[in-house]
């Protein structure tokens, strides 16, 4: 029996198990009620992906005009906006619109001062209790890591923002103040549809459709979750090129060294 035949026979045994597992997984998915997310063509997909600068700016505009009324962005600082093309003066102005508590001062008192670029984004509510009190008992989660914290990532967020339904399907009773969403687990979501056509008037004149809004704010939040991504992928390409060349040289060297052996 040749080596390849042996290999295929033994591998065949191993893969029977895998195939069985795969077959089971398909039936399990079919029986579950999870909705298939539509994969979007994100600018940051792939090994060369970068964040579309226009989408980032528009996305920030949506966050700062819509999302910010309920959602915090605790791990992002105003100075980080300079990484996506905002001017320093502009960032100072943006920060100064918010107030943060500082102190104690020389009198031992805490005081409010305008936020500086080095401050993190100021949260809309002082704490979780305050935000629940203002939101019908629901807690709007922090958005800093949202894109990394959900299965499906940006596609989930895009689906969540675009797939609200006016009415729940027959036989499903929505609780008071809840909305129906095709993507949200359990479909009953406390957040009313946040975006719609013309929710925001873009500064750069891009047509303000719901789809555009959802794509832009998702891009912005993808950046907020992985601000290192562009640097990471750029460095990764260089490291990979080095490793390919280096490994190629090692293979050549290995052949040369072993050729002496009989």
């Amino acid at each position: 029996m040749s080596i390849s035949m042996k290999l295929s026979r033994t591998l065949g045994t191993a893969f029977t198990g895998l195939l069985l597992a795969a077959a089971i997984s398909t039936t399990a998915q079919a029986s579950g009620d999870s909705v298939k997310l539509e994969k979007q063509d994100w600018s940051f997909n792939g090994i060369f992906g970068t964040y579309d600068r226009g989408a980032l700016k528009r996305g920030y505009q949506i966050y700062s005009e819509v999302c910010v009324s309920c959602h915090s962005l605790n791990y992002v600082a105003y100075r980080n906006l300079m990484d996506i093309g905002f001017e320093e003066d502009n960032v100072k102005e943006i920060a100064a619109e918010f107030e943060v508590e500082d102190g104690p001062n020389d009198e031992g008192e805490m005081y409010l001062r305008p936020a500086r670029p080095s401050d993190r984004f100021v949260a809309p509510y002082a704490n979780e209790k305050a935000s629940r009190a203002a939101n019908n008992g629901a807690f709007p989660p922090d958005l800093s890591l949202m894109v990394k914290a959900r299965k499906g990532g940006p596609d989930y967020l895009y689906g969540l923002l675009t797939r609200y339904q006016e009415e729940a399907p027959d036989g499903m009773e929505l609780a008071d103040g809840m909305s129906y969403n095709e993507v949200f687990p359990g479909h009953q979501i406390a957040m009313a549809q946040p975006l719609d056509d013309d929710a925001v008037e873009y500064e750069d004149g891009t047509p303000a459709t719901l789809v555009q809004h959802a794509k832009d704010v998702t891009t912005f939040l993808a950046w907020a979750a992985s601000p290192e991504m562009e640097q990471r992928k750029r460095l990764g390409i260089k490291v990979m090129l080095f490793l390919f060349v280096w490994t190629g040289m090692l293979i050549a060297l290995k052949k040369k060294i072993w050729a002496k052996l009989h």
Partner: peptide
Amino acid sequence: IKDMVGMGVFFIVYF
């Protein structure tokens, strides 16, 4: 040298 070849291939996967 053989271990270093393996290391190169492994690093490609790892990184």
